[in-house]
Simulated assay, not measured.
Amino acid sequence: MIPLQLSLVVTVYNEEDNIKPLLDAIYTSLSGIEYELILVDDGSTDRTVAEAKQWSNDRTRVLIFNMNYGQTTALAAGIDYAKGEYIVTMDGDLQNDPSDIPMMLQKAIDEDWDVVAGVRANRQDGFVLRKIPSKFANWMIRNTTKVYLKDYGCSLRVYKAHIAQNMGLYGELHRFIPVLAKQQGARMTEVDVKHHARIHGTSKYGLNRTFKVLADLILMLFFQKYLQRPIHLFGGLGLLAMITGILINMYLLVLKLLGEDIWGRPILLVGLILVLGGLQLITTGLVAEIIVRTYFESQDKKTYTVKEVYQGE
């Protein structure tokens, strides 16, 4: 028996046919390990909750949301409720294999890693709709954040509890969990894990998530580089805009002194509108994200509501 407690956080949404085989696989794979299972139902509209209550054992807690909040919020709730020294996250669609968890946990303990991330070595997903967008997103995140992991989309990961519980998960930042962990100085490694084709239910992801990843990547880069020194970003842009404006005004002043009419030049008006409009949109979005974080963290507010907590028997 591994002499450390483990909390396994599994998020599910409309996975009624997967619940029983999922729980059976978890209970079998983790026998001999001191663990708790936290199953987070993200507002399912089918029989997922009923199936979870029916097949849960005494090591399982089911967090039942009153509505669908999204995977990031579901993960945050599960981590908040976790009591283990190590926390494992995993999807509930049976594509991750819980039999990999003991190996990953042992590696984290023996080699003192803060995060052990899974890599889907033989990924069983569609090539066009899943693999190509995923490869593009992985490449983009690696080269912009400088956090070099192979597979950002694999949710099967082992964390030391203090790392997982201080990541500050909001919005849809679950794709960037390794980056959030790295910001805390986490030591990370990767291991190959098994990956299975989905048998029951339908995937909740599509091509539209690529655009969400790109939008969240802008936010993540801001958090990574400028969260503690925003003046370096906004001040730099402000100075650049101010100096450019001064140069333009000096040029127009010279033209005016030479007797030319400078009022109403289209290219000047278009350029001014585009620069000011773009800066306003970008800075408004970034400042709004900071305000949201301050609102939740300073008042210890949660981004979800748990309708019920069911303890398995």
Rank of each mutant, 00 (worst) to 15 (best):
E190S: 00
P178Y: 07
I273F: 14
V254C: 08
I248L: 14
H200F: 12
R175Q: 14
L180H: 01
T202M: 11
T202E: 13
G277W: 09
I291G: 07
L274H: 08
P266F: 07
R198W: 04
I246L: 15
L274P: 07
M242Y: 09
I248S: 08
T189A: 02
H195L: 00
T244N: 15
Q224V: 03
G201L: 01
A181Y: 04
G238K: 01
A288I: 07
Y226C: 00
F211N: 08
I290M: 14
P178K: 02
P266L: 09
A241H: 15
I246T: 11
S203V: 06
G278L: 07
L269D: 13
R293N: 03
T244G: 15
I267V: 12
P266A: 03
V179Q: 07
I248Y: 12
Q183A: 06
V270R: 12
E289R: 15
S203P: 04
L169Q: 10
Y251H: 15
A288K: 15
I177C: 04
R209T: 07
A215H: 11
N249E: 10
R187T: 08
V270E: 06
I246E: 02
H195Y: 05
D261H: 13
G171I: 06
L219W: 11
A197Q: 09
V213R: 02
G245Y: 12
M220L: 04
A197N: 10
T284E: 05
V287H: 08
G235H: 04
L233G: 01
F176R: 03
T202Y: 10
L169H: 13
G235V: 01
P178M: 04
R293D: 02
G238T: 00
L214G: 06
H232K: 00
R293F: 09
V287N: 07
L233N: 01
Y205M: 13
G264C: 08
H196I: 01
L255P: 05
G185V: 03
G171P: 03
I231N: 02
F234C: 00
K225Q: 12
M188W: 05
R265V: 13
I282E: 05
L173E: 12
L217F: 03
N249I: 10
L227E: 13
R175W: 14
D261C: 04
R187G: 02
R175E: 11
G206M: 06
V213P: 00
Y205F: 11
L281D: 06
I243M: 10
R209G: 01
M220W: 06
G171W: 12
K182R: 15
G264N: 15
L286K: 08
